[in-house]
């Protein structure tokens, strides 16, 4: 066992982990931050996306010890300080960008990383950026729409009904 320390959602945390402990298991099992989900074992579904030092990474594809000393952000830290939904989360609710909710934490974390680098992405840029986030429920329509809306773009014209 090795001690690992990091900042998660602004709080300093530490724990004893094995070499093989994944960041996703450290978050879920050691810190009980179960909002980060694991949907595959080949690093493709993106349900486990978190931010490490401000960048989106797949936490099931990174050893916890690799995040030693890092600033980690998870879905649990995304809401506003008063507990209300942040702009992206609110857009997902407003535009029905989630159904079963399982891929949602990864989607929100990826969307946040995208908008940080590209505050007004086009539809094509959003779709390409989400290449590593699989959703089985929504057909992506409302996810893309929600991210466009979260970036302040008018989505009224996007076909709905």
């Amino acid at each position: 066992m090795t001690q690992v320390s990091m900042t998660v959602n602004g709080k300093s945390v530490s724990g004893d982990v094995e070499g093989r402990t994944l960041l996703s298991s450290f978050l879920r099992d050691h810190l009980s931050l179960t909002g980060t989900h694991v949907g595959c074992d080949t690093g493709q579904c993106g349900a486990c996306v978190v931010h490490v030092d401000g960048e989106a990474v797949k936490s099931c594809n990174m050893l916890a010890l690799e995040a030693d000393g890092a600033e980690v952000g998870t879905i649990e830290g995304q809401a506003n300080a008063d507990g209300s939904l942040n702009v992206i989360q609110q857009a997902f609710q407003d535009h029905h960008g989630l159904q079963c909710g399982f891929c949602t934490p990864g989607m929100v974390m990826s969307a946040a990383a995208l908008l940080k680098d590209n505050p007004r992405p086009t539809e094509t840029e959003i779709r390409e950026y989400l290449e590593g986030n699989i959703c089985r429920c929504t057909g992506y329509h409302n996810i893309v729409k929600a991210i466009m809306a979260a970036s302040g773009q008018d989505v009224g014209a996007i076909a709905a009904e």
Binding site: C40, E128, I143, A159
Partner: peptide
Amino acid sequence: ASYMDYAMPRADDVPFYTVDHS
């Protein structure tokens, strides 16, 4: 036997859809 070979639809495989249930 995994997402390496089973092709799940991604966001860039599909367009916006038009849905009418009137």
